[in-house]
Amino acid sequence: MDTTTPAPADPRAHLTSPATRAVLRVQHRVLDAVREHLGGRGFTEMLPPVIGPVTDPGARGAKQVDVDYYGHRYKLMTSAILYKQASLTAFDRIFCIAPNVRLEPLETSSTSRHLAEFHQIDVEVAGASRDDATRVAEDLVVHVVRRVVEHCVAELGVLGRDPDAFTDLVSGRGFERRTHATAVADLHGFGHDQNPDAEIDWTGEALLSSKSSSPFFVTDYPKGSRGFYDRENPANPGRLLNFDLLAPEGYGELCSGSEREHEYAAIVARMRETGENPAKYAWYLKMVREGVPSSAGFGIGLERLVRYLCGLDSVWQASAFPKIPGVVSP
């Protein structure tokens, strides 16, 4: 893949190009398939807030965007996680197509898979375990890919994407799983210096992804690599009951998810472990203290999924109005 594909200089040229039109049609089909699949399984689609007094602090090194809300400092959402947990007091199974804004570190401008503004297909299920969540994620991805392969032959043709790339994925064999510790050992085996206590770094993620022909889960990330809401495994302290789903062919992470912390004291302690000041989470902690359901869920990066489906060099090509970190654009 070409990691140096420049951003479009002109929105008109980008929007009117046959490639962009094909990509946006695939995106439309993906959203249809998501709604078809989850709607048919008892999920209620909700509309997530865009601003709030606090948002997900879990994004690696990314700056949040402040909004002056009648004299109060509000944030644009970096993810819907807090509202997803809260929404389970209304429905047991919810999803949303959530817009997120993260002012990512400038180094991410060259990863080909970061946008400062993007969307997540966010799913949360009350009473679910991590295994339940990975099953939902896998079924959803397989369904979406099948629908795209069935209905977007012409678009994939325009983009030069061979539908056979998804043969393994739709075969029904199931996605492989490996733990974070195994992934780290694999990377060390490839000669990559991966910190065992941290998130898989961008280079390591691309390396693992390039060695696979089908999406695969990485599970059990170490505490200290994720936000306070990923549940610590009581049977394996220091490890989280969470997962990432990585696309093959070097496309990297598509999705992050976890079983959630939902008990008040555990959440407060985990907030401190992640350097957070609990005072600013007042509304969320009040809800948690009064009780929110246990749950598991995930968020799939919509543009990343579309990039993988379309075989694009860079994730910005999967956005009508892309915002590459640090690049001033419409």
């Binding site: 690696r60 206590d197 941290a198 998130e199 170490p222 200290g224 472990e273 992640t274």
Partner: peptide, 9 residues
């Protein structure tokens, strides 16, 4: 964990 998170982020 705060130190690890700093190294991670």
């Amino acid at each position: 964990q705060q130190v690890r998170l700093m190294r991670n982020n």
